Amino acid sequence: MTIKRVPTPAGDQAWLVTGYDQIRTLLADRRLGRSHVDPDNAPRFIDSAVLGRPRQGTEQEENERHTWMRRMLAPSFSARNMEKLRPRVRQIADGLLDELTGQPQPADFHEAVSFKLPVLVICELLGVPYEDRETFRRWSEAMSTLNDPEKSQQGFANLGTYMGELVERKKKEPGDDVITRLIEGAGPGQEEVIAQLSAGLLFAGHETTVAVIDRGVMLLSINPDQWDAIRENPRTIPDAVEEILRHRSPISTRSDDIGMPRYAMADIDIDGVHIQSGDLVLLGIEQANRDETRFPEPALFVPRDSNPHLTFGHGPRFCIGAPLARVELTEVFTALVTRFATFGLAVGVAQLTPRAEQLVGGVAHLPVRWTAL
């Protein structure tokens, strides 16, 4: 059964969907979203400010808000503009690897590269001062804390306040950045909306990519044949990146009875199951990415000719930051295989510390060793 009732981590009931075809269909269904007409009494997913509860709204309001957001952001995050950014991302990656190789081995790749690269890039794009990175890092981590609702809400509030102040500064001192363009495109009276949107971009623009870069290093370390293969033929790196995006982390602590939370904003019937308006639906993206009908031998880590994973979603809500993430990932792994003869974990996977209390997961540290070419 690919659709069943399960308890959420917060203790409420939800529909869990795990089949690839069903999830792909629901991702494209505009009746499923982040809104609920009665959010205070809606089923809870987790006790966190991020994805914990739905926002207030109807199906029409949600889709109008989403259309407006896509229209505002699409030009800045288009695939063409992200390709123009590629040389700058390459420069940043090379600089960070220069710093890494200046450290004694083993060195913490998570702290030296995985965290810094996405933060540097998203700060430049948005116009956020990079020197504030440690401050908003604390707030981002607090926001996505799963076991401390008060800490999560405080982090959310702090980041929102920070972005609100930055928006006001940008109105007086505009720059060549996304926040300035949002201010110019939205017009007066939209400052709070822009601050919220910018806070979401800042959070999503680095937290998830950090975890994927770390995951790629782990997967290539425990699959040295794939490291050798992409070193011999760097043109296959985009395929390797797609497999990293599809694959589950080697240290995943997530239950299979969990998924991306969405709310039915109208009654939905799928595969003989009736989902009522207001019900919480968990889309098991990780499970869909391991569906054997789409991915033969899904446990294998191997670049595939066809890799229609759902990590970035599908349809009208396909992740707007996907082109940016792909540029960052291809550039960092290209830099690794063209600079090092060997590169990988300095400890076994079992010795790594998972960030189990964080919504995006990942690891706390990633000690690595290398041999330069």
Rank of each mutant, 00 (worst) to 15 (best):
K116Q: 15
P149N: 05
T180D: 03
G284Q: 06
F340M: 04
D38V: 07
R34E: 11
V217T: 10
Q276I: 01
Q56R: 13
Q56L: 12
L201Y: 02
R53L: 06
L159Y: 10
Q287L: 10
L73H: 07
T2R: 11
N81C: 00
L146R: 10
V17H: 08
L202P: 09
V360T: 07
G362W: 06
L97C: 04
A211V: 15
F136M: 13
T293M: 04
M265C: 10
T2W: 03
F109N: 02
I237T: 02
A93S: 13
A229Y: 09
T236N: 10
D279E: 08
E61Y: 06
D228A: 12
P54N: 14
V273Q: 13
L27Y: 10
R294E: 14
I268Y: 09
A325R: 11
D108A: 12
R294T: 13
G361R: 09
R248F: 00
V50M: 12
A346T: 14
D21G: 04
Q60F: 09
G52E: 05
R169E: 11
P54W: 13
V363I: 04
G95Y: 09
D177R: 12
D108W: 14
L182M: 10
G259K: 11
K4D: 01
T311Y: 10
P87E: 07
K170H: 08
V360I: 07
A364S: 05
A325F: 09
Q56A: 07
F340N: 04
F109G: 00
R369G: 01
I230D: 10
L245N: 15
A240S: 08
A364N: 05
F77G: 01
T330F: 00
L219R: 15
L117K: 15
G155N: 12
L85Q: 05
P296K: 14
G33Q: 07
D98A: 11
V332W: 07
S76W: 02
Q351C: 00
V210W: 02
G33T: 03
I268K: 11
P188V: 07
H274E: 15
F343Q: 09
L220C: 09
E292H: 13
L324H: 07
R53Q: 13
A325Q: 06
G33I: 02
Q60W: 12
R71G: 04
H274V: 09
I230F: 07
F343K: 05
I222Q: 14
F115H: 15
I122A: 06
L126S: 11
P174H: 06
A346L: 11
R90V: 00
P224H: 14
A157N: 13
F340T: 06
R235S: 14
P234R: 15
K116W: 12
A288C: 03
T25S: 05
S252W: 04
V368E: 06
A299L: 15
E59M: 03
M163F: 00
